[in-house]
C-alpha cells in the first residue's frame, strides 16, 4: 500500500523524530511511504487565529499536493481534524482523505499489535481534537496496550483540555498556564515516566511545563512508542 505522509509543519520543523518514527513504523508494517516535498502547513493556525484567507490558500495548496494519493497519514489528531472538519467549509469537498496515525493503523491496516516493545510506565492524554474532533475513541490506547513491556496507567481528567489551543497559549497565557498546571498535576499523580499523546503541539505545551518544573517526566508522541522495538 502506497501512502503519503503529511508530517505537519510543527513536526517537520520541531519534532522530526516523530516523522521518522512514522516512516519506520509504516515500512515495518509493509507500507510504501511517500513524502510529497511540496507540503507545508494545513492552515490551522491561520484559520483558528482569524486569518481565513491565508488558511484557504494553504488548504488549496494542501489539496493540490496530496491529490491522487489513496491515503494520507498524519501524526497529528489536530491537523487531521482540521482537514476533515474545516476543509469542506473552506474549499469544498475536493481533497483526499486524511487519517490520523492510529485511525490508519486500526481502521485501514487493521492492526493493533504493531510489534513494539517499550518497557515503561506510560499515561495517555487524548488531545481535544483527537477526542472530540476525530472521535479516535480508544484506538490509541488499544495500540498502546499491545506494546510489550508497556504499563499503561489511566490519566485522571484525561478528557480535559491541556490549555494549548494554538495561539490561545500566548493570547490567554494565564488561563492556558492554569489549565496546564492542572494537567501536569494529574500526569504527575499517575507516577508515569512518559506522557504520550497523538499531538506534538499539545505535548510541546505540557512537556515545556513538565521540563520547566524539572519533573523528569518525558513526553513522547504515540508514533515514537509504537516504533520502538527491542
Amino acid at each position: 500500500m502506497r501512502v503519503a505522509l503529511f508530517v505537519t509543519c510543527v513536526n517537520d520543523t520541531l519534532f522530526p523524530g516523530t516523522g521518522r518514527a512514522v516512516v519506520s513504523l509504516l515500512r515495518r508494517l509493509g507500507c510504501e511511504v511517500d513524502f510529497p516535498l511540496a507540503q507545508t502547513c494545513c492552515g490551522q493556525m491561520h484559520l483558528n487565529t482569524g486569518y481565513r484567507e491565508e488558511a484557504v490558500r494553504l488548504a488549496r495548496r494542501f489539496a493540490g499536493v496530496f491529490a491522487g494519493y489513496d491515503a494520507v497519514v498524519a501524526p497529528s489528531g489536530s491537523c487531521a481534524a482540521m482537514v476533515r472538519e474545516q476543509y469542506p467549509r473552506l474549499i469544498g469537498r475536493d481533497f483526499p482523505a486524511v487519517h490520523d496515525l492510529s485511525e490508519f493503523l486500526i481502521d485501514v491496516l487493521e492492526v493493533e499489535d504493531v510489534g513494539a516493545y517499550f518497557p515503561h510506565r506510560v499515561t495517555y492524554h487524548p488531545t481535544c481534537h483527537s477526542l472530540r474532533g476525530l472521535h479516535l475513541g480508544d484506538r490509541p490506547t488499544r495500540l498502546l496496550r499491545k506494546v510489550r513491556g508497556l504499563e499503561l496507567v489511566p490519566l485522571p481528567g484525561a478528557e480535559e483540555c491541556c490549555g494549548f489551543g494554538g495561539t490561545f497559549a500566548v493570547k490567554n497565557p494565564a488561563v492556558s498556564a492554569a489549565m496546564c498546571a492542572d494537567k501536569v498535576r494529574n500526569v504527575l499523580g499517575t507516577g508515569a515516566e512518559v506522557l504520550c499523546a497523538a499531538d506534538n503541539s499539545c505535548l510541546m505545551h505540557i512537556g515545556g511545563t513538565l521540563r520547566r518544573q524539572r519533573t523528569g517526566v518525558r513526553v513522547m508522541h504515540l508514533a515514537e512508542i509504537l516504533e520502538a522495538t527491542e
Partner: peptide
C-alpha cells in the same frame, strides 16, 4: 511558564 523545545539539527524534510 514553559521551556521552548530544542530546535533539531535537521528538519524532517
Amino acid at each position: 511558564t514553559r521551556d521552548v523545545p530544542d530546535i533539531p539539527r535537521q528538519s524532517f524534510r
